[in-house]
Design a protein around this nucleic acid. Structure first.
Lengths: 196, 196
DNA sequence: CGAATTATTTGACATATATCAAATGCCACA
DNA sequence: TGTGGCATTTGATATATGTCAAATAATTCG
């Protein structure tokens, strides 16, 4: 199965376990004046297609979903859980219109910080610099892993891998979204689940 | 086709066109004592499975290929051309054994710099910091784009997209590698090419 | 609680792509 | 120059997955 696959779960998790609480503390103390608390109702949007993303979002409560619309159908690219940083990286970096949406799947509580403020704070506080590097690295590793699994694994392998890695996803997310995240149809996912 | 797809070609290219010459100049002047020139013969390895990657590589001449081996078959994940930065990001970041190989498809000339040296230089020279951020961002955008195309596009779409974006690939790379890069079989690629 | 809506499963069939085998084309080099 | 080894194409067939339609199952909400 995926045993001989790049698997960096433990290490990424270690980073996150160390970095995220530190970041949260920083946000709530030194950086307090730069953050705003955002409350989303279920199905509210954090970002819509065509808008430029200016913020980093720190998820406190709730689950968000990132998706594109291609040929009229929604295509899920990511889920954001508490303690995740949610943003549209491409839109933010290039300051161009977002191709996708970030939407609350549940009611959410979120800190947001302007990316421009963040960049200024980095200059003064080298810890922020470090935190950003680690978060971005974690994101790169995540992307590489997802890429690997899309390129080389069958739908069933991808599903089992995801369930092993993110068991909490299964509980809280409708299968339609999981299917589109895995790049397969809802029916195929259902059949995979029936087998195992 | 891919017209409604995230396409950041122009912007990434702009970044690269500005950043890469600057980096090259820096490497050859201020940072001269931190780089080494590496010469590879065709089929020589820059990195092998099981080794930890400690370097950033700046490709001067030649073409390199990044690949994994899964179930006995090579699976290409990337090509590195002159003016690209080649490395195994995951191995470098996490200081863990590489799952894949970086191999010269042709004879190559390459500058290498220890990642630890690079990180020190960043502290002294904020330009280096900026350069790194831009390069990493560019890499993230590339990964997101590849991910998108693997998740949502047919093999034919992916091929045409690649040909449009990287026409020079077609000229210089055997179809086997292109097929595995696209995540399809050699035969399927051949049929796609026959049609169009 | 019960009706309406939504989520999930199942079935029949279509399509894209993989796999195996063979044929052809291309090229290095003895 | 010819020959052996790759690279690429083509054909026949198998398999995985998608699509459409319908049946259940679960959830929401008046």
């Amino acid at each position: 199965m995926l045993s001989d696959t790049p698997s960096n779960n433990a290490t990424i998790q270690k980073y996150k376990d160390e970095i995220i609480p530190m970041l949260k503390l920083l946000l709530e103390t030194e950086m307090k004046e730069y953050i705003q608390l955002v409350s989303l109702k279920k199905n509210d949007f954090l970002l819509k297609e065509g808008e430029v993303c200016h913020y980093y979002y720190f998820v406190l409560e709730g689950i968000l979903r990132n998706y594109y619309i291609k040929d009229g159908t929604e295509i899920t690219t990511n889920f954001d859980f508490p303690n995740d940083i949610a943003t549209n990286f491409t839109s933010l970096m290039l300051q161009q219109k977002s191709m996708g949406y970030i939407q609350g799947m549940t009611a959410c509580k979120i800190y947001r910080m302007k990316a421009s403020d963040f960049d200024e704070l980095k200059v003064q506080n080298p810890l922020m610099q470090q935190i950003k590097e680690i978060l971005v690295s974690g994101y790169v590793i995540l992307l590489e892993e997802r890429l690997y699994s899309l390129q080389f694994c069958t739908a069933a392998e991808r599903y089992h891998f995801m369930m092993e890695r993110y068991p909490h996803y299964l509980q809280q997310i409708p299968l339609t979204y999981i299917a589109s995240y895995l790049g397969i149809s809802l029916e195929t996912l259902s059949r995979i689940r029936a087998k195992y």
